[in-house]
Design a binder for these strands. Structure first.
Lengths: 216, 216
DNA sequence: GAACGAGTCAACGGGGTGTCGAGATACGGG
DNA sequence: CCCGTATCTCGACACCCCGTTGACTCGTTC
């Protein structure tokens, strides 16, 4: 249990592996971050808070992570991996019809982020301060957009959906809506759609946008 | 030209009026903020930068504004006033048909924020750090949502639009999409819809969401 | 038991915020 | 003309946070 197996957590994101008791400390930092994020925003959490929460001093924190953002990034890697896995499973599994397919995809997307509420909110917040966080978000967004654009094009090709704006642009607009609506619902800031109405409303807009013809 | 007339700029937002040369300093600070925001993000601008840009020392800055956020808030008041005026004009003026009405509203909305690109981007950024900024945003969002929800309900009442999700929820979802798509387009972060395609794509989604029936 | 590497932290330097209190400056009235 | 008052200004301070350095403690290995 000391070494041997490949590191199970956070494969990428360039950080030196640490062995022996170091792993415990690292996990303690991550757990502290996740716990503190439940009660306050990322900007209200200092490196000192994370260090003390993990039972170490501030300089020692820097032995494990290069910055506060890196901790968030490591935490986000897990969520992203989970989201990608869920997304892949949903898109690849057969569905009774397009309506059900989109419905399942939306519900899975929402569920993933809802089960990591604090992290999702912190993600959105850190996007404006950390380039790495912004990049990670852009990657995830791009993957989702491409999947959706492909699906839209497929529906158009088989004559199920009418022509319209470039599939990619449509996918970007609709994915942006998802993101913002979900964030508002999770963060509680400002007007938001009620929790149980999020998926139905998003679904309705997606379906009409993809399959409906505009009036006139 | 010293005093006499009511203060033309920033009527609300609780700040003590100052007369004589003080007005100049205040305006210099605002101008500096607007200028610096064109080149870097708000968090990369220090109070010292604003003070030096306006030709005063840092403590003197605090004589005019209680914080950096307050400067942004004052700047935003102008944009909000402009947006509200434009929005009111668009909604009140008669249109050839619903399509044109929505098209004009969307275009006006987009134009307002595009002509204040730097400020809009800073607004979104500061939303996560300043409660006052967040509140201002929520107010603007809420006004827009209510206008749209009312219009959707009117269309449904006259039989032009089919029944569907609560008009307010639909308005929230679509307005969220507007906001996010516009922000992405203006900030240049991550995948975005090209400048000239923003309004057409948004319009298409709005029209199908409001007037189109879902498949199946 | 010496050498080494992992882990630890007090102390430092640098940058940011917001405040305080002492001075400058302008101006109207005695 | 001079004086009081309100406006304005800033040097210096206290505080918070970040990230680094260099010395120190351990456990392991040869």
């Amino acid at each position: 249990m000391s070494d041997g197996a490949a590191p199970p957590v956070t494969p990428g994101r360039g950080r030196r592996p640490s062995r022996a008791t170091g792993d415990d400390r690292e996990l303690a930092i991550l757990a502290t971050a996740e716990r503190l994020l439940e009660e306050r925003s990322l900007s209200a959490i200092s490196v000192d808070d994370l260090a003390r929460g993990a039972g170490i001093s501030r300089p020692t924190f820097y032995f494990y992570f290069p910055s506060k953002d890196a901790v968030l990034l490591t935490l986000l890697d897990r969520v992203v991996a989970e989201a990608d896995a869920t997304m892949g499973a949903v898109f690849d599994s057969p569905a009774a019809g397009p309506r059900e397919a989109w419905q399942r995809a939306l519900a899975a997307y929402y569920d993933t982020f809802r089960t990591h509420r604090a992290l999702t909110v912190a993600w959105a917040e850190a996007r404006s301060t950390s380039g790495a966080v912004r990049t990670l978000w852009a990657e995830v967004f791009e993957r989702w957009v491409q999947r959706c654009a492909t699906s839209i094009e497929a529906e158009r090709a088989r004559g199920a959906a009418p022509a319209g704006p470039a599939a990619r642009d449509l996918a970007i607009a609709l994915t942006s809506m998802n993101e913002r609506v979900i964030y508002a619902s999770l963060s509680g800031d400002g007007p938001a759609v009620a929790d149980e109405d999020v998926v139905p409303v998003l679904l309705r807009v997606w379906l009409t946008a993809v399959y409906g013809s505009p009036p006139d």
